[in-house]
């Protein structure tokens, strides 16, 4: 059975590493694709060749990134019928109320503020990963 990967969009290389580490600790070798900005995420999600279009299990999306920010990626995902129902978790360091409202209004599934404390940070990411990596199993149990 093919597993849909988690798409992690984060401009800081350090944080990609740390997030990967946290995910590995919670969901083992579950596939993760990590990209450095919004444009790269768009390239993966909307490749001209339909066979190469990525449909991740969940998109973990940073907000402030060079080239293309998270909000734009989110809007692009929601406006394409193929991806409009894709789960998107915003993971940002912004504490601005405005950002939270903008993200939810643009269709984010959840908005998580990155904790500075790395114990909390890795627990937070672990929970997100575990939740989405096992969602199908849980759906099957319910059926």
């Amino acid at each position: 059975m093919r597993v849909d990967p988690i798409l992690l969009v984060e401009d800081s290389e350090d944080e990609r590493l740390l997030a990967r580490r946290a995910l590995k600790r919670s969901i083992g070798d579950y596939p993760i694709i990590a990209v450095a900005n919004g444009q790269e995420a768009i390239d993966h999600l909307f490749s001209p060749n339909p066979a190469q279009c990525l449909t991740p299990k969940v998109v973990i999306l940073d907000l402030k990134m060079p080239k293309m920010g998270g909000l734009e990626v989110l809007k692009a995902i929601r406006s394409n019928p193929r991806t409009s129902a894709l789960p998107v978790v915003i993971l940002t360091s912004s504490k601005e109320h405005r950002d939270l409202v903008d993200c939810y209004q643009s269709g984010a599934n959840s908005y998580v503020q990155k904790p500075v404390d790395s114990t909390e940070y890795s627990e937070t990411i672990a929970v997100i990963g575990r939740y989405w990596a096992t969602i199908n199993e849980r759906a099957q149990i319910q059926e």
């Binding site: 350090d14 944080e15 740390l18 580490r21 360091s93 990155k114 500075v116 790395s118």
Partner: peptide
């Protein structure tokens, strides 16, 4: 504050790692 928080996450994150 936004720019300062990011390196702090690295410092704390890799210390924990």
């Amino acid at each position: 504050s936004h720019d300062l928080r990011a390196p702090l996450r690295s410092i704390d994150g890799f210390s924990l790692a």
